[in-house]
Lab assay of single mutants.
Amino acid sequence: MAAGGDHGSPDSYRSPLASRYASPEMCFVFSDRYKFRTWRQLWLWLAEAEQTLGLPITDEQIQEMKSNLENIDFKMAAEEEKRLRHDVMAHVHTFGHCCPKAAGIIHLGATSCYVGDNTDLIILRNALDLLLPKLARVISRLADFAKERASLPTLGFTHFQPAQLTTVGKRCCLWIQDLCMDLQNLKRVRDDLRFRGVKGTTGTQASFLQLFEGDDHKVEQLDKMVTEKAGFKRAFIITGQTYTRKVDIEVLSVLASLGASVHKICTDIRLLANLKEMEEPFEKQQIGSSAMPYKRNPMRSERCCSLARHLMTLVMDPLQTASVQWFERTLDDSANRRICLAEAFLTADTILNTLQNISEGLVVYPKVIERRIRQELPFMATENIIMAMVKAGGSRQDCHEKIRVLSQQAASVVKQEGGDNDLIERIQVDAYFSPIHSQLDHLLDPSSFTGRASQQVQRFLEEEVYPLLKPYESVMKVKAELCL
């Protein structure tokens, strides 16, 4: 049975990233139509530049190519590739079939990587351009969430054990800070992308030097003109047959890092959902379990974690691919890159769409948070109580021993009897502590235990987050809708 299948058929496997999760716009960027249309555009740009620099290419040939950029006979191309065992030459023939007058000058002087690699770089750039505003929107939604809850005390956790208090907004800023680093890295790697350009079979530009009869300047002009037509500021000066596969490492490393950030955020949300302090959106008709109707599973956060793990592992592909590119190139890269580049971007696209949807509907339960604080705060307040007693004339050592005994009794009630923490009640009825009984409410005010959390939130948002989001103001209103 021949390899390949009808990918629109229910009898043929289709990647869930495309069929179930990723956005239509990201799927289109990695589609065959987008790819092969870009090949034709690159052939047109090459012909236009070659004509401008004096090669015998007519206006009629150029116009014929322009008129057929979208006229792609995919069936013919597939048949040609089956016959020739070469995808680029299959599309040269297919393009030439609908451009008979231009057929002889299509791909003039070029090698397969002229269309293959340059198209990949265009796709990487455009895919990054799709991700950047999506990530900015996630940051914006979380920034709104953090600002609104900047002063809401909550129990902090280290080692997932109760620690000092923080605020809900401050905790959210930990998430935002990681995503801001990801946004900066995505922008950097996007701006650092260079075009492969017009380089020939081993990167020496020998074929173009021959076409222009040894004119170095025209060869350099050709490279520059096509690079500018493709919208790049610069091209690699040095290439082998391909652009260095280190570029793929750079791009997928940034995406993998984004995956790590999203995994951490969504894990926190899942843990908070278990504590009943916070939940992701839950639709009115949504079913959490087929057997347990009360369940409210954090399905979206779980999906993000599941896909983020996949995204983090994909960076190993370009690392290994770059390491086995012998001399000017081997074909070890080809099949692998067809999979890992598309999957990385479709996965990143999915987790950003999902995280935006989550961040637009996060639900906080202040009463649950308050109750958990009441359970733990008495123990945390013991040092403040000791200091207040010393100020009232008591002995630190005597007070410490009193607190120690009462704390152990209260802990026994919590752990052995399943009761509430009654340390404060014990202190309130103990005559030894009568000098500070009137101060206990103040000493137990949760806001006095959150330090500068709310001020940190305000400063972080104003100095770091809002300036970073400013270039994306025009796209901030787009909502994230999930079908599944």
Rank of each mutant, 00 (worst) to 15 (best):
A22I: 11
P24T: 12
M26N: 00
K35V: 07
Q41W: 14
W43C: 02
W43K: 00
T52L: 09
L55T: 04
E64V: 11
E64S: 13
L69R: 08
E70F: 14
D73T: 12
R83L: 11
R85P: 00
R85W: 08
V88R: 00
V88M: 05
A90D: 02
G96T: 11
H97E: 12
C98M: 12
C98G: 10
G104K: 14
I106L: 06
H107T: 02
H107K: 00
L108F: 11
G109T: 01
S112R: 01
C113I: 05
L121M: 08
I123S: 10
L124D: 09
L128F: 09
L128R: 03
L128W: 00
L130Q: 07
A136R: 13
A136C: 15
R137C: 15
A146N: 14
L152V: 11
F157A: 11
Q161C: 03
Q161V: 00
T166M: 09
T167F: 04
L174Y: 07
D182Y: 05
D182V: 03
L183P: 00
L193E: 04
G197W: 01
K199Y: 02
G200K: 01
G203D: 01
S207Y: 05
S207V: 06
L209G: 08
G214N: 11
K218V: 00
E220N: 12
K224M: 10
V226T: 10
T227P: 04
K229V: 07
A230E: 03
G231D: 09
K233L: 11
R234D: 10
A235D: 07
I237H: 09
K246R: 06
D248I: 04
L252S: 12
L258D: 01
E279Y: 05
F282V: 15
Q285G: 13
Q286P: 02
S290K: 03
S290H: 05
M292F: 05
M292I: 05
R303Y: 01
C304W: 03
C305D: 04
M312A: 05
T313N: 10
L319V: 08
Q325A: 13
T347C: 13
V363G: 03
I369N: 08
R372V: 01
E376W: 10
E376V: 06
F379Q: 07
T382K: 04
I386P: 02
M387D: 01
A392Q: 13
S395K: 08
S395Q: 14
R396F: 03
R396S: 04
C399Q: 04
E401L: 08
K402T: 10
I403F: 15
R404I: 06
Q409P: 02
A411Q: 08
Q416Y: 14
G419M: 10
G419C: 13
L423H: 06
L423R: 07
I424E: 11
E425I: 01
I427N: 04
H437W: 11
S438V: 11
L444E: 06
S447T: 13
S448R: 14
V457N: 06
L461A: 04
V465S: 03
Y466N: 09
Y472P: 07
V475W: 09
